[in-house]
Design a protein around this nucleic acid. Sequence first.
DNA 1: TTCGCTGTGTGAACACTGTTCTCGTTGTGA
DNA 2: TCACAACGAGAACAGTGTTCACACAGCGAA
Lengths: 235, 235
Amino acid sequence: MGETTTHRHRRRAETEAEIKAHAWAAMRESGPAVLSLRHVAREMGMAPSALYRYFASRNDLLTALIVDAYESLGEQVNETYVRASATGQNAFEVFMAVAHTYRGWAMSHRTEWALIFSTSLPDYNGTPETYAAAGRSFGVLIQLTADAVAGGLIDVDRLDRTLDDDLRTSMRVWAEHTGQELPAGALAGSMWCYSVMHGAISLDLNGQFPPPMADSPALFDSALRAMLAQLTPTD
Amino acid sequence: MGETTTHRHRRRAETEAEIKAHAWAAMRESGPAVLSLRHVAREMGMAPSALYRYFASRNDLLTALIVDAYESLGEQVNETYVRASATGQNAFEVFMAVAHTYRGWAMSHRTEWALIFSTSLPDYNGTPETYAAAGRSFGVLIQLTADAVAGGLIDVDRLDRTLDDDLRTSMRVWAEHTGQELPAGALAGSMWCYSVMHGAISLDLNGQFPPPMADSPALFDSALRAMLAQLTPTD
DNA sequence: TTCGCTGTGTGAACACTGTTCTCGTTGTGA
DNA sequence: TCACAACGAGAACAGTGTTCACACAGCGAA
């Protein structure tokens, strides 16, 4: 038998996609979190109740949208990782390329970003599916850390010594959980970089930076490079 | 005459506060962004329409709540700044104390944090009042930067040289806007620290860190110290 | 080919929501 | 004591997510 994709199946996938497309459009113009099923239905020329044939609830639709957003982000990030790695640059340069892709995605997909990273969606609760989707771009970060360690870019021993004991064991626990051979210090360093990256983007997107430094890739770049410099050996 | 606080005035202020208290309580248990005026009214034993004597709309109530949250945060941050400064510690140690207060507030006021920092509140738009309130804790950061520069903790010249030209001029523009004498490099450094601080908290609160390092003040601490180390002279 | 089932769409209904309006009542300053 | 502003109640309107009974279309099996 295999996958019998009947005519019905295809049509169903189409309408499903169309619903999501209209949902994105609505959120883009009215801001996220005001997604109205009735509005989408009206836009599509169908009864509100008909949407429930495709998504069991508003939350389910939101989950699907979030998963799609994660997938889009993960895909772009991963693609950049692969392409930049192929050029033979060292892991830090690859990381910078990935980070700029990450930031670029956030800037050009503000709605998606808000949907992913804003707690406080009305009544929405995260699901296992979203967590799984989130892991994908996180995996690239772990991979990059492993690359950097392999390339000798990280002063593993020094970083390890600076860590608090409890923190070091936390890192070890997680390191074993990843497939890679990751020293605690390196893992901590990657979390530092992740924090800078996420924080700079988040502040920028929310307009929490003073006006003249808003939407400044240069500030983002300098912040990340400052943190990376802290990881290198022979300071 | 002066301030004639009649009986009515006092009662009005009381109900206003009571409304906000009930609103916070409701958000705390049902998550933010599902604030329902009717629910608050029901809880208080009054008609929904009566609330409109105190807040012109749901957005106005939200604004008041956000301003209160900012004020609470700003107050705690400022208090820590004053107290820590009085002990004669250097500006970096004061900054660490302030940062921990900041993080502690975020952890113990998740609802308030979400209200402040989540874009994507349903239909809510920022107002001048909220921007003014936001500036208060930002001011402490600027003050700390000035203190650090005055204390010779920041390698101003080196940082200045590492900056992109456009970025440096952006920083200068903003530096003039603040009352303080802030070199561009130092200002950039403070933005880096702000990014780390905000990012680490944000990721932690949203559960975006791997489980074993969730809710870890040590990770937060190490990330900030790593960034601070990057600012000091004579590396 | 006809039967029956499953997938899809409809429209009415329910319980909500924010908001506005009109109508009383009640406290306060003159 | 009077007049007026402040306050509260209740009904109403338009909007929401969601459910339900119903009707039709398409498809596999008899």
